[in-house]
Design a protein around this nucleic acid. Structure first.
Length: 495
RNA sequence: GUCCCCAUCGUCUAGUCUGGUCCAGGACACCGGCCUUUCACGCCGGCAACGCGGGUUCGAAUCCCACUGGGGACGCCA
């Protein structure tokens, strides 16, 4: 295979959404796997809808995901001159012609065709205009568009899709499509090809929604005398109702940024996305970057569309459960030092960061993360459910309070008593804490779970958490004693 | 409507090219159990699918044909 060069050409008309990100990821993986180049090209020819904000959003999203590009970002508008030039060339070579039909006429014809239930498409009215007629209309100042002259011949345009196999389409079913607007600006179908030729793109990996574009663009490649790249059409991502996912109907949930804001690890999102429409052929689901690059192949991309399993308003899963699961798996398996970096950002954003976590308290900090990360799903959980580990200013979980504290009125006295016992210990170790707690429970004749669960509630604010005996040591005598002694206030607050 | 593509558990999917090893495997989710001071992790178990109908064949999830279903495209958007 000659040099592999692939590209990701988003149009900056909105944020980077997960479908686009997945396309970028597949291209990027393919480039990395074959030692090729991954090119980022912003297709901003639609001036009305393109925004700088959107460009920034796309770039930021790519960077966050760790999808790095080798060339670009190029901007399509910078090559406008070349696009016009190529359009003229097609015109001069007889591969295109000027069409003076008005928009109104065409709309009327389209409606008529629709009503007659016939194939839609341009009828070729201006295709056979003589040069005199063209000159006359031009002289009269009638605006025109440039249409590509699809060869009138039997047979099919075909290409060997790396995902779908041989795809064919009859010439007779391809209409003479517009390549230049009446204002002189070339359209996507042309610009895209011209840019891909200039960028020496070898493989075009894009969504199946581009399939009809592909047959038309192949015609342009041929007319321009350029080598036709290899095409691979990826399956689309749909929602549970099998509708294409979009910002309009799904909102933030399909934005990459959403996952950044909701505590996802970037690589976990990449890992989830890549599995939506591709599989390695074995049972592996979690991949390091190197493993994924090594394993990825176009041939193992699925043909059928995949569904992004998101239920709006689901009380338990704010996005696809598999995505959350994969994120949670990463959360509890990546090196704790790496996790610390993400948690640091989150703590800083919530004014809970202490520089000592990278100094004197580093060991404590890492140990804490190690203990609590097991039951968390996103980085956000560290400041939500994990708040009490990092500050005295926390709210006790209401359920935990009711179920593990208030339910047993005796705890109002027992907890401070337990605090006293701990206080007398020279050192509050896991072993000592367990011994003392068990002895105490026996004395007051309750199951050890009662004071222990209550202690968890008042110390961590949570209903659930790591082994309480280990937590006593983790929190340290001072904080444990103070929070236990503080327990009676919860009873008073109620009355 | 026309053209193109697709079709295995609720979801992501393996298996389809090269028919038998598949009364269909894994993962998520869900349910039950073990572990346990709680929850989680982990482990064990369960629920759950080859869209329908024909054909070819000794044998079909796998090949063929219809049907049905789903998606996409049909812009002077990209």
């Amino acid at each position: 295979m000659s040099e592999v060069r692939v590209r990701f050409p988003p149009s900056p008309t909105g944020y980077l959404h997960i479908g686009g990100a997945r396309t970028a990821i597949y291209n990027w993986l393919f480039a990395r796997k074959h030692g090729g180049k991954f090119i980022l090209r912003i297709e901003d020819t639609d001036a009305d809808r393109s925004t700088q904000e959107s460009i920034d959003g796309i770039l930021d999203g790519m960077k966050w995901l760790g999808i790095d590009w080798d060339e670009g970002p190029y901007f399509q508008t910078e090559f406008a001159g070349e696009h016009v030039e190529k359009a003229q060339q097609l015109l001069a070579d007889g591969h295109a012609y000027k069409c003076f039909c008005t928009k109104e006429d065409l709309d009327a014809k389209r409606e008529a065709a629709m009503a007659a239930k016939k194939q839609l498409g341009y009828d070729g009215t201006c295709r056979n205009l003589t040069s005199d007629e063209v000159a006359h209309k031009e002289a009269a100042g009638i605006p025109y568009v440039v249409r590509f002259k699809v060869p009138h011949k039997d047979g099919v345009v075909s290409y060997d899709d790396k995902v779908l196999g041989l795809i064919k389409r009859k010439y007779s079913e391809i209409e003479d499509f517009v390549i230049v607007r009446s204002n002189g600006k070339p359209l996507y179908l042309l610009c895209n090809v011209v840019d891909d030729i200039r960028d020496r793109i070898s493989h075009i990996i894009r969504g199946q929604d581009h399939m009809t574009n592909t047959t038309r663009q192949i015609l342009i490649y041929e007319a321009l005398g350029a080598k036709i790249p290899v095409f691979a059409h990826m399956p689309l991502t749909l929602d549970l109702k099998k509708a294409k996912i979009s910002k309009r109907s799904h909102g933030e949930i399909v934005a990459v940024q959403f996952y950044q804001q909701h505590g996802f690890l970037p690589w976990a999102l990449v890992n989830f996305l890549v599995l939506l429409g591709w599989n390695p052929g074995d049972d592996r689901e979690i991949f390091s970057k190197e493993e994924l690059i090594e394993t990825f192949s176009l041939e193992r991309i699925n043909k059928a569309a995949s569904i992004f399993n998101y239920r709006k308003g689901d009380p338990k899963f704010f996005t696809d459960p598999k995505a959350i699961n994969i994120n949670a798996q990463y959360l509890r398996t990546i090196p704790v030092e790496e996790l610390a970096g993400y948690v640091k950002e989150e703590l800083q954003a919530n004014d809970l960061w202490d520089d000592a976590y990278e100094g004197d308290k580093k060991e404590w900090f890492l140990k804490t993360l190690e203990m609590i990360r097991e039951r968390f799903h996103t980085i956000k959980d560290f400041v939500a459910d994990g708040r009490a580990y990092f500050t005295d200013d926390f709210q006790i979980n209401e359920k935990a309070l009711k179920k593990n504290v208030l339910k047993h009125p005796g705890l109002k006295e027992w907890l401070p008593m337990l605090a006293d016992r701990f206080d007398q210990l020279p050192e509050l170790t896991t072993e000592e804490a367990e011994r003392v707690a068990r002895e105490f429970a026996e004395e007051i004749e309750v199951k050890v779970g009662i004071p222990i669960n209550a202690a968890r509630a008042v110390i961590t604010g949570q209903l659930k958490g790591p082994s309480m005996f280990e937590l006593f040591e983790l929190f340290g005598k001072e904080r444990v004693v103070s929070r236990l002694r503080n327990a009676p206030k919860y009873f008073e607050d109620q009355s």
